[in-house]
Design a protein around this nucleic acid. Structure first.
Length: 237
DNA sequence: ACATTAATTATGT
DNA sequence: ACATAATTAATGT
């Protein structure tokens, strides 16, 4: 992994609309940016690994982060995806000194980062920073808990449907035929999100494609009929 | 109701 | 040409 590169000058507009910083004055944002390092990551780059010392925390400016954990059996599990405009790698907010999961870029991405020792300073000095970050942390924890409940109760088809719906809600991009997932995603990825296999995901997507609910190509999935998917996801059996 | 195995085809560099 | 991704059928639990 290469070193983060200190940026000569970052524009204040990068953070003015980002929730954890939106309540701050320009002067404060200037301070924060001057402490930040900026770095571009190509697709599939590991930003940090589970268990590593959490020496920095991150703010995703562009792209998508895939949060990944490895089971004791060595299988990858995708916990969630993080869209741009959110903090990640915030072990300090969870009371950890190491990263609780691995962060991989799902697409080409740009992130700011700060040394973790600045965390306390941010929390105490910057109005709204703490409340906003804990809000998003809460949302993420809730999402992961929901996922675990789904695993136990729902069938694979419904889990795939819910995963797709989450993806288009959080990372969807409007296109002519529907809502497309904004980053490259494979059947394998979807299987790792749903606790299934790429074969089952492939078959399921093919079936939905024939019904016109989705349309997909290599590493691309578009949901054409979101409502139909919701019905499937909600079906009780 | 699903996984696994295996064979085949499509797609991107 | 090659590697990676996706499909499809057959078989197993």
């Amino acid at each position: 992994m290469r070193n983060a590169r200190p940026q000569s000058r970052l524009d204040e507009s990068l953070l003015t609309n980002v929730p954890p910083f939106s309540k701050l004055e320009t002067r404060q944002i200037r301070e924060i940016l001057d402490l930040a390092s900026s770095r571009r990551y190509s697709e599939g780059t590991t930003v940090f690994q589970e268990g590593e010392d959490a020496d920095r925390f991150f703010m995703l400016l562009d792209g998508y982060i895939r949060v990944v954990r490895i089971t004791p059996g060595g299988e990858q599990v995708i916990a969630l995806h993080i869209p741009s405009g959110q903090l990640f790698g915030i072990a300090k907010a969870l009371g950890h000194t190491t990263y609780p999961a691995t962060a991989v870029t799902a697409a080409e991405s740009i992130a700011l980062s700060w040394p973790t020792r600045l965390w306390e300073q941010f929390v105490t000095e910057y109005d709204g920073f703490a409340s906003e970050t804990y809000k998003t942390v809460g949302i993420r924890v809730a999402e992961m808990n929901n996922r675990i409940m789904e695993m136990a109760t729902q069938q694979v088809e419904q889990r795939i449907a819910k995963s797709l719906l989450r993806l288009i809600n959080q990372t969807g991009r409007k296109v002519a035929t529907g809502i497309e997932i904004d980053f490259p995603i494979t059947r394998q990825d979807l299987s790792e999100m749903t606790g299934s296999t790429l074969h089952t995901v492939s078959r399921t997507l093919s079936a939905w494609e024939k019904q016109g609910m989705v349309s997909s190509g290599r590493k691309r999935i578009t949901v054409c009929e979101p409502h139909e998917l919701v019905l499937l996801a909600e079906a009780t059996g």
